[in-house]
Design a protein around this nucleic acid. Structure first.
Lengths: 410, 410
DNA sequence: GGTATTTAATTTATCACATGAATTAAATAA
DNA sequence: TTATTTAATTCATGTGATAAATTAAATACC
């Protein structure tokens, strides 16, 4: 048999069509051809194949597309039930499961409260297997087969080895979490940093879809970052790149959760802000090492109301963040820097000293045309991004296999 | 005519063969097939085309390849005279021209002493045009046609716009230097940062050829860096990425040549080291703002002989460099960091505090398996790398055109 | 209402190109 | 001298994208 040389072309084009449909929703074949720089003959051929395999469906033409001259467009769209994916977000004291359909929509979610810091590796893996298995069984009827699983974890992870290297949510270190799941479930299983998931969600936004070099900074309990290079997430040599939170503000500075000193996370993360604030200010009592949203908002309100100590804490944080962003600009020079995460609640308090620090740090030529903006935070963003990443893996499978294979469940 | 769909495959494969031949020297067709994952039928086809067009030549089989059974290999190699490229290295008070042959070998070089800081844009461009024109004329007989020109400049350049944004060698700012040359010479003209050129030279070294994510730090009069991502130089949004020298060590720190304070360049570049040293130590007099190699070596010798002030200066520099490298590791997590440039002369003096700073700054998990090494410095490295970059542009042209086009010279 | 026009989608013929298999080439081993 | 081994070439084949031609389905115009 002739080897599949040009096969990769067909595969690439098929994936491109699927991704266009997922990004834009239902589209006509002509438009798919234009967007993907293909001839309409090729689109017809590929979409015919996908229709036959049940990956896409033809939409009855809606009246809004009429009114022009000429033959009306017939839209095609992904079949939402062609496959589904399961995502798991592991954060401190919480494990969140979601199911996404083939269009990338959230189909189901539930959250479990778990004492994550007390978990052994075996217990964690057992918990995941049990719950994923249960979800698969219950939902096999309504959704398509489970085509992919994506785990999102805050901290340092190695997507390549499939292991959690270090996470604030666990006492565990270097846990291979992917292999056991892969052995149990016959579908791609991937592990990703939560910031990478969020950037996957953000790059679905039309405003940021076509920005090739993008840095997404995530402020929250910790500080994360994801870097997109040429439209692709950059994972570094061993999967743990973009640890923005652990770049240095000063040697021998404030103590960081990682155990070292002077990391910018030690100045701008929730735990750092509250650590500095709670002894000096009238704030809600509670676990000050893991401040709740209410506690953080109380702190922000103090600053908004002009409390000088609170103002000073955010001034310092803005300065540290600006200096850190300056380093990102100098080293990566992205088109756009986005700041998101629950920490954006204090952005107005941070902004003046942040801008000042950035301008003090870098000559105009190095700031260049890089834009800086905030991106509204939503606690489902991580999961939505994880669904995107899981679907990307599912697509590959779906396209390369002659027909989508179901998940054997026991 | 049918559009060139699969054309790109042929082009890619042809480029791959040319690059294999340039990297490894003469090779047999079978080996080219194995290295590039192609069938030997394809290699025969492509090499036949290249032979016909005079891009490659068949080598008489050397006796060393005999002795085995079977039909002996017939080696093919790039014709060194298939084309040549001109490179120009612009540095302070010096303009260096080189000619490289199609194999990437240095064929000719000359250096002009020029008061670069006094040059106007017009004078600079005129100087370049005159000299390149002269070179082309004189060498048209011995070399092939000039297929590409590459300019290497220290400082912030925009390869995309083809302009020098900021350079310590010039008083000029934002000079479009590529357009006039492109208008004058009918061949690709590109502009690159000198650190990017050096990384192009280093990635020809067998030890570093297959490292996908590589950071090359260049210590010298200034501090530069080049980042290779997935084997490709990363240029950032506007071409001026990897300004490692202007990442921050501390707010309101030492004054940097860029005008800002606290850049790591302001602690570890030649001018910074000598600035701190020359008032306190018995050092050769001369332009202390632009110390010569002799001056710098005198300073290093003092440290080697145990002079405490000199030792302290290098200790501090090592600490700053280590902290800076920590940020590169945290953000970028490359497989390998290489330190090169004339500044490696003091590496032994820097190393202890550098290692200390790196270990103080980052947890083991973030240092990961990234290796740190020095790469011996050679003042022709920039030019050799520029030749590589110029050839890359020339290859594209050579492959896409039906036949190589000569450079119309007047 | 019938015809022309316009745009979308499909079909068909064509061409480029990588490949496996078969063949030829050129050496050594027996 | 013949068999064996390895390299290179030739040839038939299949894949796949495309332009051009064709068909489909609407609106515009008279």
């Amino acid at each position: 048999m002739v080897a599949p040389v040009t096969d990769s072309i067909r595969t690439d084009n098929t994936l491109a069509l699927i991704r266009s449909l997922r990004a834009h929703g239902a589209m006509a074949r002509v438009d798919l051809a234009a967007v993907n720089q293909l001839s309409s003959a090729t689109v017809t051929s590929i979409s015919g194949e996908l229709l036959e395999r049940g990956v896409i469906v033809e939409r009855p033409l809606s009246t809004q597309h009429l009114g022009h001259r000429g033959r009306p467009k017939t839209l095609i769209a992904l079949d939402p039930d062609a496959a589904c994916v399961i995502t798991v977000k592991l954060s401190i004291n919480e494990v969140r499961f979601t199911i996404g359909n083939f269009c990338g929509e959230l189909h189901y979610s539930d959250t479990q409260t778990v004492d994550t810091l007390a978990l052994t590796a075996e217990a964690l893996i057992e918990l995941l297997i049990q719950h994923i298995d249960g979800l698969s069984r219950r939902l096999a009827a309504t959704c398509g087969p489970v085509a992919s699983i994506c785990l999102a974890v805050q901290g340092i992870v190695s997507p390549v080895r499939g292991s959690i290297v270090w996470s604030p949510a666990f006492a565990l270190r270097n846990v291979d979490i992917v292999s056991p799941l892969r052995a149990r479930f016959a579908c791609p299983v991937q592990l990703d940093n939560d910031a990478n998931c969020i950037s996957a969600a953000i790059t679905r936004h039309p405003d940021y879809m076509d920005i090739p070099n993008l840095a997404v900074i995530m402020l929250g309990y910790g500080v994360g970052m994801a870097i997109m290079i040429d439209g692709k997430p950059y994972l570094g040599a061993h999967g743990s790149s973009a640890e923005f939170g652990h770049t240095k503000y000063e040697s021998n500075g404030a103590l960081c959760a990682c155990g070292k000193r002077g990391c910018i996370e030690a100045y701008i993360s929730d735990y750092a802000l509250y650590r500095d604030a709670h002894t000096l200010l009238p704030l809600p009592t509670g676990d000050s090492a893991h401040p709740s949203e209410e506690q953080m908002q109380a702190l922000v309100r103090l600053a908004e109301n002009g409390n000088p100590v609170a103002r000073q804490i955010f001034d310092k944080a803005g300065h540290v963040l600006g200096t850190g962003i300056a380093n990102v600009l100098a080293l990566f020079n992205p088109d756009q820097v986005l700041i998101t995460g629950s920490g954006v609640r204090a952005y107005e308090q941070l902004k003046p000293s942040l801008d000042q620090a950035l301008n003090d740090a870098l000559v105009e030529e190095l700031i260049g045309q890089t834009r800086l903006a905030i991106y509204g935070w939503d606690h489902d963003m991580t999961c939505m991004g994880a669904i995107q990443l899981a679907l990307k893996a599912a697509d590959h499978r779906l396209v390369q296999a002659d027909r989508p294979s179901a998940l054997p469940l026991s």
